[in-house]
């Protein structure tokens, strides 16, 4: 009798589980009476990139780019973090050629590599690359191990060292997770340009689809000489520079 009961119980509970599963899968099919439609997933037919011409870029330009980024994403107002603990999604870097003494200024941020080392090393797949080449941190999965920061050749990532509140609606940020330039993915998905590019509004920084032969960035890259930072690492960055 006991044996039978147990078997029956298993049978019944399986049936219940199955029906719950059916209902659950049915839900995603049930549509809403009203509501906005979802867009399609992004594909690898596009690859977003940026070309920064350091010859045309003044130091003030770069500072404008940095503050536009801070404004857009709400970083830089941390009160407890000190020194290197402060986030830096984009920063102004000044370099001098040791042979020619030539000085150039550039904006350095996540280079959105095709083969990102941060994605390779992340144990939980939190560091990820979208199909269209934008490298992001999925903060839902980030456990804050900081291995991606060890692996990034560009010092592009920051760790949130303190509690935050009043974040931007489109840019969740929180203590204990890693963050970096998103190429303003929330704007790009709406067909807009990244905040730093919009702030400058000159041809010193060109943003667009690297794969589209008609795009400004594609044609400019064909015409002018450009480089990738740490090209020796073969990461095929989405952010390119000319004039350094």
């Amino acid at each position: 009798m006991k044996e039978l009961n147990r078997r029956e119980f298993i049978k019944n509970s399986t049936a219940v589980t199955a029906s719950v599963a059916t209902v659950a899968s049915g839900i995603s099919l049930t549509t809403f009476a009203a509501g906005p439609k979802e867009t399609d997933p992004v594909t690898n037919e596009k690859r977003w990139g940026m070309l920064i011409d350091t010859n045309k870029l003044t130091e003030v330009d770069i500072e404008d780019m940095v503050s536009a980024c801070q404004e857009e994403h709400g970083w830089g107002e941390e009160t407890h973090s000190t020194g290197d603990q402060k986030p830096g999604w984009i920063k102004k870097v000044k370099v001098k050629d040791t042979a020619t003494q030539r000085i150039s200024n550039l904006a350095l941020m996540c280079q959105h590599c095709e083969e990102p080392p941060c994605v390779d090393v992340c144990p939980t797949n939190a560091s990820m690359k979208r199909e269209d080449g934008i490298v992001l941190v999925d903060k839902h999965r980030c456990i804050g191990c900081r291995y991606c920061m060890m692996a990034c050749p560009y010092d592009a990532r920051s760790f949130v060292h303190e509690d935050l509140s009043n974040q931007k609606e489109h840019m969740p940020r929180g203590k204990g997770t890693v963050e970096s330039c998103t190429l303003c993915v929330h704007k790009v998905d709406k067909g807009e340009q990244p905040a730093c590019v919009e702030a400058l509004n000159s041809d010193a920084v060109v943003f667009g689809d690297l794969l589209d032969p008609t795009s400004n960035i594609h044609q400019t890259l064909k015409r002018v000489q450009s480089t990738q930072i740490r090209a020796d690492l073969n990461l095929n960055t989405g952010v390119r520079y000319s004039g350094i």
């Binding site: 994605v119 090393v121 992340c122 144990p123 999965r141 291995y147 997770t177 890693v178």
Partner: peptide, 22 residues
Amino acid sequence: DLGRPDRLIVAMTEYNFESIFA
């Protein structure tokens, strides 16, 4: 020392097999 030690379960369930850490 993790930034989010409360998410240890994520580290046990979400493996990226390319990661030496994993």
